[in-house]
């Protein structure tokens, strides 16, 4: 589904991303882990054509993202609060994104009804603009908007951070269901080893922009990752 070839991003002399080759097959739940400055967000930004790589390219479902914009019709993302429109109410935001993805108002409504539990009554029907919601609730709204319109690829940057425990569990279930039943390719980054090992079928470990490990998740993965990061302390 996604193919990264020779991708590198340099700022003057500093290399922040340098990946030789990385292929993510369709339907995979792909986790990205690493410390601050590992290049996780940079990689996602390159995938979404938000920054121009110094060299190399990203192919998303046969589309070179820097040349054609066709990838936008099947790819969604939530990286940070710049994906929210602060002066809209959550409903208006969902309808707006829905319209862009070709969903009618009724379809958006019925889609939203699945997430009643997830929203915990704090998002829909309130009298607040998105800018006035708490950070956690903003994130919930952004993530759900990224799930709308049956995308083939979903990219989420640190989806679990800032969420309350119950919501984290619910979100994990949502992600697992999407990859099991809908064959959606999901890319997730995280600082939390446990979260990614729980959700992702495959985990890639980045450090200083380079691919250090590429693991198919198994029983031992959590331990392996823990030991890797513990070893970094000394």
């Amino acid at each position: 589904m996604i193919e990264i070839q020779n991708l590198a991003k340099k700022y003057s002399t500093q290399t922040v991303l340098d990946i030789n080759i990385l292929k993510i097959p369709a339907g995979q739940t792909f986790g990205l882990i690493g410390n601050n400055g590992a290049g996780k967000t940079t990689l996602f930004s390159c995938l979404l054509d938000l920054i121009k790589p110094t060299k190399g390219k990203v192919i998303n479902n046969q589309v070179d993202v820097s040349i054609s914009e066709d990838w936008k019709s099947f790819t969604t993302a939530f990286l940070d609060e710049t994906f929210l429109i602060g002066y809209l109410m959550p409903e208006e935001y969902f309808y707006f994104i829905g319209e862009l993805r070709g969903l009618s108002k009724q379809k958006v409504d019925s889609f939203m009804s699945q997430f009643e539990d997830f929203f915990n009554g704090e998002i829909l029907g309130g009298k607040k603009y998105l800018r006035d919601l708490s950070k956690g609730n903003q994130k919930k709204a952004g993530i759900v908007a990224a799930l709308m319109g049956e995308p083939k690829v979903i990219i989420l940057d640190e989806p679990f951070a800032n969420l309350d425990p119950t919501t984290q569990i619910r979100l994990k279930k949502i992600i697992k269901d999407l990859s099991n039943y809908k064959d959606t390719t999901i890319l997730i980054s995280s600082h939390d080893i446990q979260d990614v090992t729980e959700v992702c079928e495959r985990i890639v470990l980045l450090e200083k922009g380079e691919l250090i490990r590429d693991i198919n998740t198994s029983e031992e993965t959590l331990k392996e990752l823990e030991e890797y990061f513990k070893a970094r302390i000394n």
Partner: peptide
């Protein structure tokens, strides 16, 4: 400007 990344990744011409 505050949500330009959103606009740039949506299915928009």
């Amino acid at each position: 400007s505050q949500y330009y990344p959103l606009m740039m990744t949506q299915n928009i011409q």
